[in-house]
Amino acid sequence: METCAEDGCEDPAAVRVYVPWDEDRDVCTGHARVLAQKDGVVAEPLEGTGDDWR
């Protein structure tokens, strides 16, 4: 399983975030919650990680 793309985070990646002003990346649920609150960011659960990321 891939780890979160955020610097210093070792949690497993569970969500792909599409960020208009930056690169799209796979992140953990905690970082996804923060990023998804910003305008224009779309968060999508990664296949096979369940749907409990919200």
Rank of each mutant, 00 (worst) to 15 (best):
P12E: 14
G40V: 06
Y18A: 02
E6F: 11
P12C: 02
C28E: 11
M1R: 11
T49Q: 09
W53L: 01
V17A: 09
M1E: 10
G30E: 15
D26F: 00
H31M: 05
Q37A: 13
G40R: 01
R33F: 00
T49P: 04
R25L: 10
P12M: 07
P12Y: 09
D7K: 15
L46A: 04
G50W: 01
L46S: 05
L35N: 01
E47T: 11
A43I: 06
K38D: 08
H31C: 13
L46N: 06
D7A: 15
R33H: 13
E10R: 15
C9W: 10
T3Q: 12
A13L: 09
R33M: 07
T29Y: 00
G48A: 05
A32W: 02
D24V: 01
A36R: 10
R25I: 05
C28Q: 11
T29E: 14
A43S: 15
D11H: 12
R16Q: 14
W53P: 04
E6N: 15
P45T: 05
V15K: 04
T29K: 15
D51K: 07
T29M: 12
G40Y: 07
P12W: 06
R54A: 10
V41Q: 04
A14W: 00
A5C: 12
Q37E: 15
A13Q: 07
R25F: 00
V15L: 02
E23L: 09
C4T: 11
Q37P: 00
H31N: 10
Q37D: 14
E44S: 08
P45I: 03
T3V: 14
R25V: 06
R16A: 10
E47A: 14
G40Q: 07
D24F: 01
D26G: 05
A14E: 14
P20M: 06
D22K: 13
A36F: 01
D24C: 09
M1K: 11
L46W: 03
V34Y: 13
Q37S: 10
R54F: 03
C9R: 11
P20G: 06
R54N: 06
D24G: 02
D24T: 12
D39Q: 10
A36Q: 10
A13W: 03
R54Y: 06
G8V: 12
E44Q: 13
V15S: 04
R16S: 08
G30W: 11
R25W: 00
K38W: 07
E6W: 06
D39T: 08
D7F: 14
Y18P: 00
H31G: 05
A5F: 09
D51N: 10
C4E: 11
P12T: 05
V41C: 03
E2H: 09
V27N: 06
V19Q: 08
V34F: 13
C28G: 08
Q37F: 00
L35D: 05
G30A: 13
V41K: 01
L46V: 08
L46P: 07
D52M: 02
T49I: 04
W53N: 08
A13G: 07
D52V: 02
G40K: 04
R33E: 09
V17P: 02
A32Q: 02
V42M: 05
P45W: 05
D39F: 04
A36T: 06
A43F: 06
E6A: 15
L46I: 13
A32N: 05
G8C: 14
V17N: 04
V17C: 14
A32P: 04
